[in-house]
Amino acid sequence: MSFYLAFLKVIGLLAVTAPVALGFGFLGAMAARSHIAPLRWFGKTYIAIVRGVPDIAFFLFFVIALDQGFEYIRHKVKCPDWDAPIRQGSDFIVCQAAKLPLGTSPEWVHETYGFALAVLTFAIVFGAFAANVLFGGMRAVPRAQLETAEAYGMSRRQTLWRILVPQMWVYALPGLSNLWMVLIKATPLLFLLGIEDIVYWARELGGTKTARFTDYPHGDWRMWYFLFLLVFYLAFTRVSEIVLSRIMIRLAHGQATTAGEAQRKAAA
């Protein structure tokens, strides 16, 4: 049962992470092209750092760092009169009330918390990639379009929302669809974050147990489970490719690009 649930987890993670990462990316791109210098620096650093380092290191780093960060903040708020240092040698000690999730809370809270951390980590990492793509997309919108908007007397904000944002998607979509493929292929890393996902179960169910725990009366099936996962991912990417090319055709409709022009000519 948990094995089937693991597939739902992967798909759920994708469904939640994709919009959140897109949101992060949008904010990051907006920050990177902001007129306020500190905000711009923040945006550019965010994009640069996440892209320069192996992402798997980020997955390992953020889960602990975020967890400790949350607990640290809660510790400061909830137990102001605690005077022992938080880092005692190699231990990270916060007061009982600041533990996240609380030691007393039921099992599902722990699991949900772990899942939420995973989503947040994925969103931060992929948000940076998305920010880069969207930043490029915003710059690719022809200058003349924006100048026309200004000539019509639109304010900066109006130009942004009515001209720039609707048009940038065509330029950003190839990058974003690439990113989606990458995101699909990154989901097995969930296993590293301690979520019981499909990789975990494939190892667990396929392995032969020792004589004391003869739960699974079969040989070593892990190879077949991983072959199955391989096919699952291949099918998933193939379907996504087809869907994304459909979306691209829709988006290119009526745009000032070669693809849009080709559609116009074909119709005429």
Binding site: I184, K185, A186, T187, P188, L189, V199, A202, R203, R222, F226, L229, L230, Y233, L234, T237
Partner: peptide, 8 residues
């Protein structure tokens, strides 16, 4: 397919 799964 993911490199991770390929390794496994």
């Amino acid at each position: 397919s993911p490199l991770f799964i390929q390794f496994f």
